[in-house]
Amino acid sequence: MRKFLAKNAPGYVFLSPWLIGFLFLALGPILVSLYLSFTKYDMIGDPRWVGLSQYEYMFTKDKRFWKSLQVTFTYVILAVPARLAFALMIAMVLDKGIRAIGIYRALYYLPSILGASIAIAILWRQIFNIDGVVNAFLSMFGIQGPNWIANPDTSLYTLVVLAMWQFGSPMLIFLAGLRGISPELYEAAEIDAASKPRQFFAITLPLLAPVIFFNIILQTIEAFKTFSSAFIISNGDGSPADSLLFFTIYLFNEAFKFFRMGYASALAWTLLVIIGAFTALSFFASKYWVHYENEKD
C-alpha cells in the first residue's frame, strides 16, 4: 500500500480536480440515469420500473430513433474526415515556417472557440438563408440558390461545412505532430528526387499516423455529441422535417420537451454504447495502420 502510494500519489494529486468533480458531481447522475433508463419517469410524478421495455420500444418501434441514427452517422462520416483533411492541410501550410506563425495559429483557431457558441449558429442560419451571403454570391453567377437551411435535402450539409470551419483543435495537434517529424527524412527524400506527393504519402502520413489516430478518436466522439449548433439551426427540434434530428437533439426533446426522462436516459446509454463500440473498433483497426516510433517490435 505504501509502495503504491509512493509511486502513484503524485498522479492522483494531479488528477484530483477532475476526479473530485467526477466522483461528487457526475457519478451520481450517471448512475441515476442508468436506473431511470429502466423506468418510466415524467419528472412530475415518481419513476415507475418497466424493465427493458424502453430499450425494446427503441429498437423495435421507434422510427425517429433510427432516423436520428441515420442523421448522426451521416454527419459523423462526412464531417470528421472533412474537418481532419482541412485541418491537416492548414497545418502543413503553417508548418512551412511562415513568419508570425503565432498570429496565424491564433486566427485559425478562432472559429473553433467561437464555433460552439450560439452566436455562430445564428450567424450560420443567416449565411445559408434564402437571401443570405451564400446565395448572394451564387446570384453573381446567375444561380438562384435554395434556402439551404429550410430545405431538408441540404440542411445537414450546412452543418458539415460549419464543422469543417472549426478545424482549430485538430490543426494544432497536427502541427505539433508535423514538428515532430525529423527534417532529415525529407532531405533524404529530396536527394532521392522523391516528388512532394510521394513525400507526403511515404513520410508525412505514416509518421503522423498516431496523431491522425488520436484526432480521429477525439473528433468522432465530438461529432457524435454535436448539439448546440444543431439545436439552434434546427429550432431545437430537428426541423426541417427531421433532417437535423441528431441523436442528441432527439434525446433532449424526449427528456425536456416530452418529459420522458426514462426513455431519454435509455437513449443516452445507447449513445454511450455506440460511441464506445466505435472507439473500440477504431483501436482495433489502428493495429493495422498506426505504428509508433518507439514500439519495440
Partner: peptide
C-alpha cells in the same frame, strides 16, 4: 413553400 419553411420557429 420555402419561404414558409424558413419562417418556422
Amino acid at each position: 413553400a420555402e419561404h414558409s419553411v424558413g419562417k418556422l420557429g
